[in-house]
Design a protein around this nucleic acid. Structure first.
Lengths: 138, 138
DNA sequence: TACTTGCTTCGAGTGCACTCCAACCTTTTA
DNA sequence: TAAAAGGTTGGAGTGCACTCGAAGCAAGTA
């Protein structure tokens, strides 16, 4: 249930073999969602124990933290999957990865300015309720 | 009348009797969506012509512009409907309306800071691709 | 008159991002 | 040994915000 981690776990806490419920607790994502991420190709291949259970690594956790950031940007899951594919394909995809990230960056910037303009309207309205306290239009 | 709209139509263009397709063109919302807004109670009662067709007023357009701003904030439609109900119920709901708007304001502020923190990670990553151009982890 | 455009209604369909279910297996605790 | 806790799978279900389709009526144009 904790928020998606942005700061790296301290080295002492790194143990490199996490069950799905541990990862769920660390990331705030449900076990269902973690399995779903793997199914749709948003996770690199996850290790398994001798009984077939998932064993996530610190690397997986880092990836998940980054994916969490992408998710916060509002990037569609399909685009995140595309990015993950590019990572799997190797170094020759750097240019495309960078382009994807830059497009996302532009989206974030424009979303921020949308929010700011909405905020200005909200403030005006709140101010109106605070001072005039009359009028029925909206 | 409320002055809240993002792009005020010039006074000369105000004619106070708009068909649904005119409103659709002016707001960018589809006719389907406009009817849906009315059905779910997100619009105040809309006038009808003698043949039963909707005739929107400038007031309606102002309301729609405001709703558009609320939508940009990411406010759920159910909350917007609640706000619309409060407006219909009259002046004694000012305090609750204000509270709703203030809660939305807080959400917007925290969304903006989420976006900013995601942006910082994005910038770091883009920088990484720009300078190091190596490494396979993410 | 025939056609086109635009309106009405209700209800069903879409796309996204999960979210949950059912049936089953393995490991740990009492 | 029995029960509880936690894991596996594929596929179905959910909630949101639209989005569209079908059938039908009314006004305007060739």
């Amino acid at each position: 249930m904790s928020a998606i981690e942005s700061t790296p776990r301290p080295p002492a806490a790194r143990k490199d073999r996490y069950t799905i419920s541990e990862v769920s607790a660390l990331t705030g994502l449900s076990a269902h969602t973690l399995r779903w991420y793997e199914r749709i190709g948003l996770m690199p291949h996850v290790d398994r124990s001798h009984t077939g259970q998932r064993r996530f690594t610190d690397r997986d956790l880092d990836w998940l933290a980054f994916v969490g950031k992408l998710r916060l940007t509002g990037m569609p899951v399909a685009d995140m999957v595309r990015y993950a594919e590019l990572v799997r394909e190797g170094e020759h995809t750097h240019a495309e990865r960078r382009a994807l990230l830059e497009a996302t960056r532009r989206d974030v910037l424009s979303r921020i300015s949308e929010l700011r303009s909405a905020l200005a309207v909200l403030d005006l309205k709140i101010d109106h309720y605070g001072t005039i306290c009359g009028g029925s239009s909206s």
